[in-house]
Structure formats: structure tokens, C-alpha cells
Design a protein around this nucleic acid. Structure first.
Lengths: 208, 208
DNA sequence: ATTACTATATTCCGAGTAG
DNA sequence: TCTACTCGGAATATAGTAA
């Protein structure tokens, strides 16, 4: 049932019924209820219907994931692997702003080196774990208003990279990054400390 | 209900009942069912019970998270299958131009092998997914002007091919390709690495 | 084909209560 | 106190159809 729910494709209740093991009638009723609750939006035409999650629906599902995470994250460690890449860095801008440097020191306990290490993710598991970071709590460095600009909030996750710590994945609240890139800060110049060059694979352990 | 489920603390069904809004009787029955299904493990004593998720339970919950992620992911995974074909490659031209090689390294995190793998799509679903790529953001390798020529921008999507990654689908901004062909780059010589010959079917996972 | 209504069948919940 | 049973009523699912 779920898999077909956020499709931009035309689906029929019979298809959903087969996939979910429920009857077509139950699917009909459930979809109607979900629509009435504002979880999904439907366009019904002669040959079937188009179904889309609403923002509210997305929020609810994110809450579900958070609840589940609370449960299974006794292990509290996620693994993300990827390859070192240049550029793409919004993070290095943060590292030139005293407010963020002070905040990292205060919230993470270390003074960050003046640049970030950018990692491109290319496998499904790591990508999923990266998406979980969007939903997980993390350490929030709060928004900071200055006379002529607003410094947006940043979420950070204490991590180790190739077994070196401390380090942290930082995710700006407003990012233009694709979800397949993460930025690491650390007190060390990691490229040197780990002898990394573009394309080298690294393994990140993220502590939730 | 959930929050108390993985506790190493002693909990009573009345507590869970209050937290979940269900009756103590229902909690009793549900816990019994979960235990019989092997999702949780319980130690019941006079003052309450200790409840722990089993490995199976944890797996099931992880599957739930994956399902939900599939639904809400802006970063979606698309599947495209097709058959290996020779020629048609505009891509191999890119791979002889240093600017593109450097850019692929920078934006994708790997140094591409000097040739592309061309895939012909022949089924409706894959074709639809291919068309979605035209609309999706992807990773843009920007246009580059040189004294005597302009190197057009290229859109890339991190992918895996027959579970081998890293790899990327590359789509030139100005292409003469039909929409039913995609070009893959990778650090590997994929034909050899995957023992492919013309006409072999491959499955591509694309990360949006 | 579709989606969805109505009436019947099944499942589920919780009050009372036992152990 | 605990957990867990029985059982009647409520909620939910399906079969048969309508539109």
C-alpha cells in the first residue's frame, strides 16, 4: 500500500489492494479517510487516481520515523561512507563567522579547523542514513540575528571519520546541497591528518 | 507505548496504557502478540515486566523506516533498466576533455574511466524514470567558456549499476541523444568489471 | 474499466474479574 | 498491586453492487 502511495503515476485501488493484501473496498475507505484527515491528496479520474502526500502527511510520517528511531537507536551509531570531494562547501563560510566558531566550540567541545571536508555519498545504505540525519534530533546551533543579517541554525552530529575524532557532520538548516553530500568539521585539517585526496573513500561513524 | 518498549527499566502495563491511551487489557494482549511474533522479549515479574526488542523486531522497524523514507524522500531512488549498447556516445568526448574530468572528480568524487557505458531503455517504466531525470535537479557541472569554444553544462546523477558504485548517469545539457539512451560514467571499466557485452541487461539505481 | 455505498462478517477493544 | 482471561459492544474489513 505504502509504496504506491506517493506515486505521480496513475494507480488503481485494485493495484494497491493486491500489494497490501487488503480488499479494494477497504483501500477505498482508507484512502478516503486519509484524504479527509489531510494526509494525502487525490485526483480521481476514470482509470484510477493520482495520490500525493500532503505536507501534513509528510510531517506525520517523519514523526513516525523519529519514534522508531528513539526505539532502535540504543545502538545510536550510524555509518556513512563516501568519497572525498572538493568544493560544494557551504560549510567553510560558517567557519569564517565568529558566531559559528564560538557555537561549535560551545556545543561540540572543539574549535573547528577553518575548512570543511566534503563527502559525496554514492551507495543506498549511506544515503538512507544521511536522510535519517535530517529527521534525527542532533545538536542544534540556534539561529542568531545580527543587525544586518540572520545566521541560520545548523544541526550537528558528533562523528568520527576513519576512526579520528572529534569531528561532526554539520547540516545547515537552509542548505542548497543535494542530500548526497555531507560536510565534516573537526579541530584537525583532515585532508592532511588522514592523507586524503579527492576520490578517497572515508567511513564516518555518526553518534545520534 | 513505543517509548517504554525498549526500556531496560521495569515497566507496568498500566504505565504503557496511560502513555498510549489504550486500556491495560489491550496493552496486555498486544504485548503478548508481539512476544509470540518474536518482535519483543519479556521478563514478567510480580511488579511489572522488562521489555526488550529482539533483533527481528529491530529489523522490522528498520524496514518500516526504509519504507517511510521511500515515501517522503525528496531524494528518491529511481530504477532504470536497459540493455548495453555500443556507440551513440557523446559522453566519451567529455571524457577526453580535462575540464570535465576535473569536474567529475570534484562534483562526483571519482575520476571517471575514459569511456561511457551506453544503455538503451526499452520498457515504459524505465523510460518514464528517464524522463523524470530531465526534470530533476541533479548535480550540475557548470558551463565552461574557453577562448575558442564553450563547454556545455552537464547534469549528473549519482547511481549504482548492477549494485556497483560509484557511478553516475550523465546528461549533457545539449544532447542529440534520444531520451531512450542513458550514459554511465564510473571509475571502473564497467564492461570488464561487470562482464558485460552488447545486449546484456543492466539495472541502474539513480539517487535524486 | 473505475470508485464507493450498503449490509454482513470479522476483528478488536475494554470492563469486569481471576489468578 | 501485578498480568491476562472472558465476553459483549464497538470498530473494522469484506462481499455484493451501484454509479
Amino acid at each position: 500500500m505504502f509504496k504506491l502511495l506517493n506515486s505521480d503515476k496513475l494507480v488503481t485501488q485494485t493495484e494497491i489492494s493486491k500489494e497490501s493484501g487488503l480488499s479494494q473496498q477497504t483501500v477505498s475507505r482508507k484512502l478516503k479517510e486519509l484524504e479527509e484527515e489531510g494526509i494525502i491528496q487525490r485526483i480521481i479520474i476514470k482509470d484510477g487516481e493520482y495520490i500525493k502526500l500532503t505536507d501534513k502527511g509528510e510531517e506525520e510520517l517523519k514523526r513516525c520515523i523519529e519514534d522508531i528511531l528513539q526505539l532502535i537507536m540504543r545502538t545510536k551509531i550510524l555509518h556513512i561512507k563516501g568519497k572525498v570531494t572538493a568544493g560544494l562547501g557551504e560549510g567553510r563560510i560558517f567557519l569564517s563567522i565568529p558566531y559559528y566558531i564560538e557555537s561549535f566550540k560551545k556545543y561540540l567541545g572543539f574549535e573547528p579547523y577553518a575548512g570543511t571536508l566534503n563527502i559525496v555519498i554514492y551507495d543506498r545504505i549511506s544515503l538512507e542514513n544521511r536522510l535519517i540525519l535530517d529527521l534525527a534530533k542532533g545538536i542544534i546551533i540556534p539561529e542568531h540575528k545580527e543587525p544586518n543579517r540572520v545566521l541560520g541554525s545548523v544541526k550537528a552530529f558528533p562523528s568520527s571519520i576513519n576512526s579520528i575524532s572529534p569531528a561532526a557532520i554539520v547540516i545547515p538548516a537552509r542548505t542548497t546541497h543535494p542530500k548526497s553530500v555531507v560536510e565534516i568539521i573537526s579541530p584537525y585539517y583532515l585532508r592532511e591528518k588522514l592523507s586524503l585526496k579527492d576520490g578517497d573513500e572515508v567511513e564516518i561513524e555518526v553518534y545520534l
